[in-house]
Design a protein around this nucleic acid. Sequence first.
DNA 1: TATTGACTTAGACTAGACTCTAAATGCTAT
DNA 2: ATAGCATTTAGAGTCTAGTCTAAGTCAATA
Lengths: 121, 121
Amino acid sequence: MTIKEVTEKFNMTNDTLRYYEKVGLIGPVKKNSSGIRDYSDNDLRRIEFIKCMRSAGISIEVLKKYVDLYEKGDSTKLERQHLLEEEQEKLEEKIKTMTDALDKLKYKIELYKTDKLDKYL
Amino acid sequence: MTIKEVTEKFNMTNDTLRYYEKVGLIGPVKKNSSGIRDYSDNDLRRIEFIKCMRSAGISIEVLKKYVDLYEKGDSTKLERQHLLEEEQEKLEEKIKTMTDALDKLKYKIELYKTDKLDKYL
DNA sequence: TATTGACTTAGACTAGACTCTAAATGCTAT
DNA sequence: ATAGCATTTAGAGTCTAGTCTAAGTCAATA
């Protein structure tokens, strides 16, 4: 699959794809005889995972660490699990923070709708 | 209230407080005869709101827009309401995105725990 | 009175994650 | 075979949201 097709499939730019490859999140992607990338199913699987985790705000640094552990083989399984568990906790906290903010936002909007706004921001 | 007390109350740095003031999110904060900031209750209320919205990822640009509308007076009420409603939608989407990612993360962790991990990242 | 520590400013710097540029090469359609 | 679009690289530039630095002022204390 060409880079163009990948960008369309996952709705991301080719710059981002090459950037992820450069920092080692994916690939190195196989290239054909004239040097053009040909993404494998495995590459696509990774990109999907990475994209999903990035959209949740997990940093490239953490993802890189996970990928590196994966590359080291089975002996890193437990460490990988712990890394994911830590990220799970962080993510749960973030969702909670955002849900709290959402509630406040909704409350404020309700004040606007019912014209019960006080004098404060 | 001094800047120090505010940083402690809201657990943020004085740099951030002065930065928010510089870009017009709060204040200008009243200063005493020797030029030192004395935050009012109103300032504190704003800081709390701003901090909460920032923690949910709402950009400084958007918050600045909201503050500017507020400063313009009652005639901007409807516009402010719409702005908040837009942010509410964005926030709900973000929370959904993150919840989806969290589910995938949990599933993956479950694979680790039950040793049912496949050969992929 | 001298020092210490909090506060002030303007402005430079940083981190993270892209995003863009330039220059070269490749592919495809006319 | 040539126009025109896609792809490649290395490396520079951008954006957001702070964070840090330097140089200075001020109040309280030893």
